[in-house]
Computed example of a mutant assay.
Amino acid sequence: MTEDARFEDGGERPLRLKALEPEDLPVIAALIQDAVFPVTEMHWDRKRRRFALLINRFRWEDKSSAERRGRAFERVQSVLAFEDVLTVQTQGLDRSDKDLVLSLLTLTFSPGEDASGRLELTLAGDGAVAVDVEALEVTLRDVTRPYVAPSRRAPGHPE
């Protein structure tokens, strides 16, 4: 008898996910919701056509386990990378404010011609980052061990 994989089967191993199709993106978008990062941790390498962010993401995949066991919620540092990037535009951000910390609300994709399209990172406070790509390739990779969330709480959203 075979059994479907369960969310909990991931255990404590670091995440390594890739989205190559629009249908793959909602998983990454859900896992990066409420991530926070300094504005200084956004990097666009024009030569390599790569845009990357070092984010501190809430470990949504561990939330129910932490609640059941009565332990603190966790965050982990992750690299969110976009490949085949043509342009990057920001709106509502003061990139010169080196102390600015951003909070990521969601990631969406609007397809264009062929495999191209626009990825949009919506930030709290009406900020946004638009990433135009030749083809969809987004990766999310945990790069540190999980740590106790400074607030010790799960992010909340008004209903």
Rank of each mutant, 00 (worst) to 15 (best):
residue 1 M to K: 01
residue 2 T to Q: 01
residue 3 E to V: 07
residue 5 A to K: 09
residue 6 R to K: 12
residue 6 R to L: 14
residue 6 R to T: 12
residue 7 F to L: 15
residue 8 E to V: 13
residue 10 G to H: 06
residue 10 G to T: 06
residue 11 G to Y: 02
residue 11 G to D: 07
residue 12 E to N: 12
residue 12 E to L: 11
residue 12 E to M: 05
residue 13 R to F: 08
residue 14 P to L: 12
residue 14 P to C: 12
residue 15 L to K: 07
residue 17 L to F: 07
residue 17 L to P: 04
residue 17 L to W: 05
residue 18 K to F: 07
residue 19 A to G: 12
residue 21 E to K: 14
residue 22 P to E: 14
residue 22 P to T: 11
residue 23 E to A: 15
residue 24 D to E: 13
residue 25 L to S: 10
residue 32 I to T: 14
residue 32 I to S: 06
residue 34 D to G: 01
residue 35 A to R: 03
residue 36 V to D: 10
residue 37 F to K: 04
residue 37 F to C: 08
residue 40 T to E: 13
residue 41 E to R: 06
residue 42 M to G: 13
residue 42 M to W: 00
residue 43 H to C: 10
residue 44 W to K: 00
residue 46 R to P: 00
residue 47 K to G: 10
residue 48 R to G: 12
residue 50 R to F: 00
residue 51 F to D: 13
residue 52 A to E: 15
residue 54 L to P: 00
residue 55 I to F: 03
residue 55 I to A: 09
residue 56 N to G: 11
residue 58 F to N: 05
residue 62 D to M: 03
residue 64 S to A: 12
residue 64 S to Y: 06
residue 64 S to N: 09
residue 65 S to E: 14
residue 66 A to T: 03
residue 66 A to Q: 11
residue 66 A to D: 04
residue 67 E to W: 03
residue 68 R to K: 12
residue 70 G to I: 03
residue 70 G to W: 01
residue 71 R to V: 05
residue 71 R to F: 01
residue 73 F to A: 07
residue 74 E to G: 01
residue 74 E to M: 06
residue 74 E to P: 00
residue 75 R to L: 01
residue 75 R to D: 06
residue 76 V to G: 08
residue 77 Q to S: 14
residue 77 Q to T: 10
residue 78 S to T: 14
residue 79 V to N: 08
residue 79 V to A: 12
residue 80 L to R: 00
residue 82 F to M: 12
residue 82 F to R: 05
residue 83 E to H: 11
residue 84 D to S: 14
residue 87 T to G: 04
residue 88 V to A: 07
residue 88 V to S: 07
residue 89 Q to V: 10
residue 89 Q to K: 08
residue 92 G to I: 11
residue 92 G to P: 04
residue 93 L to H: 04
residue 95 R to Q: 13
residue 95 R to L: 15
residue 97 D to Q: 11
residue 97 D to K: 05
residue 97 D to F: 06
residue 98 K to G: 03
residue 100 L to E: 15
residue 101 V to G: 03
residue 102 L to N: 08
residue 103 S to V: 05
residue 104 L to Q: 08
residue 104 L to M: 11
residue 105 L to K: 07
residue 105 L to W: 03
residue 106 T to V: 04
residue 107 L to K: 04
residue 107 L to N: 09
residue 107 L to T: 10
residue 108 T to N: 10
residue 109 F to G: 12
residue 110 S to Q: 13
residue 111 P to E: 15
residue 112 G to A: 14
residue 112 G to I: 12
residue 114 D to T: 10
residue 115 A to F: 07
residue 116 S to P: 08
residue 117 G to K: 03
residue 117 G to Y: 05
residue 117 G to N: 09
residue 118 R to L: 13
residue 119 L to V: 11
residue 120 E to F: 00
residue 121 L to R: 02
residue 123 L to V: 09
residue 124 A to V: 06
residue 125 G to N: 06
residue 126 D to R: 06
residue 126 D to E: 15
residue 129 V to Y: 02
residue 134 E to C: 08
residue 134 E to I: 09
residue 137 E to F: 10
residue 138 V to G: 06
residue 141 R to I: 13
residue 141 R to Q: 15
residue 142 D to Q: 08
residue 143 V to W: 01
residue 143 V to H: 02
residue 144 T to W: 04
residue 145 R to F: 07
residue 146 P to Q: 10
residue 146 P to G: 13
residue 146 P to H: 09
residue 150 P to H: 03
residue 154 A to M: 00
residue 154 A to S: 02
residue 155 P to L: 00
residue 155 P to N: 02
residue 156 G to Q: 11
residue 156 G to C: 03
residue 157 H to Y: 05
residue 157 H to G: 02
residue 159 E to Q: 09
residue 159 E to K: 02
